[in-house]
C-alpha cells in the first residue's frame, strides 16, 4: 500500500470518522472485494472476513463475540481486519485473539511479517503496523482449547459499546487463559489468575473466589462516561469467574 493511503474494508469505523469530518483520506485503498483477503483456511482468517461469517463459522468464543457486534448491517460489512486495524480497547474480536495468542499477518511491497498480538497492539488505537503495510490475515494456533467462552457487560443487548469484555479458555490439561477488553489501554491477559487456576484440576469455591480476586487486581481500568474504575474492576472478576465456571461444566 502506498504511503499516505488509507485502507478501507467494511467502512464501519472509517466512514464514521469521515462523515464527522475527523479524517479526510486523500487516497483510499478499497479492500471490500479483494478476494485474497476474504479467504479463510483453517486457522488463517483473512482480514476481510466479516462478522457475519465469523458468527456462522468461527471458533466458539469468536462466534459468540461476532454475534454481539452492532447490528445485522454492521456485521454484514464490518471485518475482523478492520477491528484489528482500529485497535479499540473495546474491539469485540480482540479478547479472543489475545486468549489464544493469535498473530497478525502484515503484508507490504517488501514482504510479509507476522506479529504476535501483544507486539501488534501497543496502545489505545495504536498498533505496530507501518503505514505501508496491510493487515492480510489473522493467524490462530492450529489447536484451540475445547472450552472457550466469551461475554461482555453493557447496558443493553444490541448496539452498545460494553464496559468489560472477557474470553476464558480452558484446555484438557487445565491450562486456562483469561483475556479482557476495555479495562486497560489494550486487551490484556490476567496472567496471575491464569497461573493459579491452570494448576487446579477441579477448582472449588475457594479457588474460584481467589481467581476472581486476582482478575480484578490485574486489570487497570479507568472511569469514563460509560462506567467507573471500581465497577469495571469488580465486574471483570465476576465475569471471568462466570465464564470459567461455564468452561468447567
Amino acid at each position: 500500500m502506498g504511503e499516505g493511503a488509507t485502507a478501507l474494508a467494511g467502512g464501519t469505523d472509517l466512514m464514521v470518522e469521515v462523515n464527522f469530518g475527523h479524517t479526510r483520506p486523500e487516497n483510499v485503498v478499497a479492500l471490500r472485494r479483494v478476494e485474497e483477503l476474504a479467504q479463510w483456511e483453517g486457522g488463517r482468517i483473512g482480514a476481510g472476513v466479516t462478522w457475519r461469517r465469523l458468527e456462522r463459522d468461527g471458533p466458539r468464543a469468536l462466534a459468540q463475540a461476532a454475534r454481539t457486534v452492532g447490528s445485522p448491517q454492521i456485521r454484514n460489512a464490518g471485518t475482523l481486519g478492520g477491528n484489528v486495524g482500529t485497535a479499540s480497547p473495546a474491539g469485540d474480536g480482540l479478547p479472543f485473539l489475545a486468549a489464544v495468542d493469535a498473530s497478525i499477518e502484515l503484508a507490504s511491497e517488501s514482504g510479509r511479517r507476522t506479529l504476535r498480538w501483544d507486539d501488534f497492539f501497543i496502545g489505545v488505537k495504536k498498533t505496530a503496523r507501518r503505514p505501508d503495510e496491510l493487515i492480510s490475515a489473522i493467524q490462530l494456533p492450529e489447536a484451540l482449547p475445547d472450552r472457550q467462552e466469551f461475554a461482555k457487560i453493557g447496558v443493553r443487548n444490541a448496539m452498545v459499546i460494553a464496559t468489560v469484555y472477557c474470553v476464558v479458555t480452558r484446555a484438557e490439561d487445565g491450562e486456562t487463559r483469561v483475556a479482557l477488553g476495555s479495562v486497560a489501554p489494550t486487551t490484556i491477559r490476567a496472567r496471575r489468575a491464569e497461573e493459579l487456576i491452570s494448576s487446579v484440576a477441579s477448582p472449588g469455591e475457594e479457588d474460584l473466589r481467589e481467581f476472581a480476586r486476582l482478575v480484578s487486581e490485574e486489570v487497570t481500568p479507568i472511569t469514563d462516561h460509560r462506567s467507573t474504575e471500581q465497577y469495571r474492576r469488580h465486574s471483570s472478576g465476576v465475569l471471568a469467574r462466570r465464564l470459567l465456571e461455564r468452561c468447567l461444566r
Binding site: 467502512g11 466512514m15 464514521v16 478499497a30 472485494r33 445485522p72 448491517q73 454484514n76 460489512a77 448496539m159
Partner: peptide, 21 residues
C-alpha cells in the same frame, strides 16, 4: 450506522449506505 434509516443492499448484503464510500 446506528439508525438504519439509510439501509440498502450492496452486492447482496444489507448494509448502511452512510458507511459505504
Amino acid at each position: 450506522g446506528e439508525c438504519g434509516s439509510c439501509s440498502i443492499v450492496l452486492d447482496g448484503e444489507l448494509v448502511c449506505s452512510c458507511l459505504v464510500l
